[in-house]
Design a protein around this nucleic acid. Sequence first.
DNA 1: ACCTGAACACCGTTCAAGT
DNA 2: ACCTGAACACCGTTCAAGT
Lengths: 242, 242
Amino acid sequence: MAGRTPRRSGQRANSELLTRDLIVTTALRLVDADGMDSLTMRALADALNVYPTAVYWHVGSKSNLIGLVAERVFDELTLPDDNQLSWDEWLGEVVRQWRVVMHRHPNVAVMSAAKLLTTTAALPFIERVVAVLQRAGLSGQQLADVYNAVLGFAFGWVSTELSEEPSDADDTWPAEFEEALTGLSNVAYPALTRNMPDLINRTLLLRWSSGRDRPLDSGFDLALTSLLDGLRRATRSRQGTS
Amino acid sequence: MAGRTPRRSGQRANSELLTRDLIVTTALRLVDADGMDSLTMRALADALNVYPTAVYWHVGSKSNLIGLVAERVFDELTLPDDNQLSWDEWLGEVVRQWRVVMHRHPNVAVMSAAKLLTTTAALPFIERVVAVLQRAGLSGQQLADVYNAVLGFAFGWVSTELSEEPSDADDTWPAEFEEALTGLSNVAYPALTRNMPDLINRTLLLRWSSGRDRPLDSGFDLALTSLLDGLRRATRSRQGTS
DNA sequence: ACCTGAACACCGTTCAAGT
DNA sequence: ACCTGAACACCGTTCAAGT
């Protein structure tokens, strides 16, 4: 097909030169538009109007490129001021911010929870989180536990909310799944059938739409406030332990 | 190479016949052994000593096969008795069980949070969860919110814990990352450097080992108990509020 | 019904060569 | 330094044909 082959002349089509930055920007655009699977080195090269190997020269490998895309999304985070807020309020705002950004880039969100990120680009972010926890009087193992509890929740919960729908193209599975759920026997599934109106396509394992189309706002709010409430009590009762 | 081509005779090598069940079992074995990426229809066919198209006849497509593998892992869950336990205690046990099973199949865990699961196989599990919440006096939107809060935490947090390390083969990034973290300036990163011994390779974004090798037990425990504690208070204070 | 065998349209990545 | 061009060893999936 036309468009597969880059320009034949020595220079690129547009006046911009091929840079690492432009590559990452274009990659993020592809991922946002059509999902992580649609990010191929060849499609990316096509979009940039160069040969795939030109992309390799700038980013090394696909997995490295994916890391760069994740960093780019990280940079969209703007952290709240850490005065005027208690540590749990501040962390709550950070997690909310995280969710907002991830809803802008759901395909990156899903990937971020799946792949271990080892990037120094997140260090300024982490410094602020640790500083807030330290100022709250936490230290040692307890500081690490609160950190993991909250960030694990933020990354994981939002990623689960945004998990991607199967793309079997022509498929009829949403209709079939809905039919199966509405047609459930109320003797075999008494609790489920009774509460189905509040659950169907609104809860995990009972939905066919991703949180991209149907955000689980109230469930997220409840989870976040409950977690922080519980953490506040847990840290208050045995402050400074170990 | 040898081994690529199935047997030439009419029948399979071993006496077992090729069934959907055997295919799923073999697929799970491949995924557990070498990760989700190593599950290719061709490698699977090789392991079963048939042509790839024979696998297609039984499972339809790769994405359908992945769903079947997820169901297989789901079946390993054994739910606790729901008498003798309060609803939050019971849910806590379920989430712990979930984590135990996912630690047995980390590659499936990561995939489960990334892909939207629409399977009727989980319905008996869901019925019990909803029944427990209902018996606790929850209903309507509040029931759905608690459900999403807890399951989203279970799926997401554990998936984040178990996220997979990059596999760039020969790579030296673990050592480089560790060096970057230990060599941090304590004027630029005062809180981070002060707490680094408790954080390095033990917390999200500051680790190069997956939770498969270094489980985040205490962080998980704190998060789970805090979440449930908070949920108990939140539901008690405004019971029945739709 | 169940499987073989060949083919199509893709992948990520490497290597040599150009400028 | 930066990119072209060709090639290698793979993919998922479809289709026709065998038994």
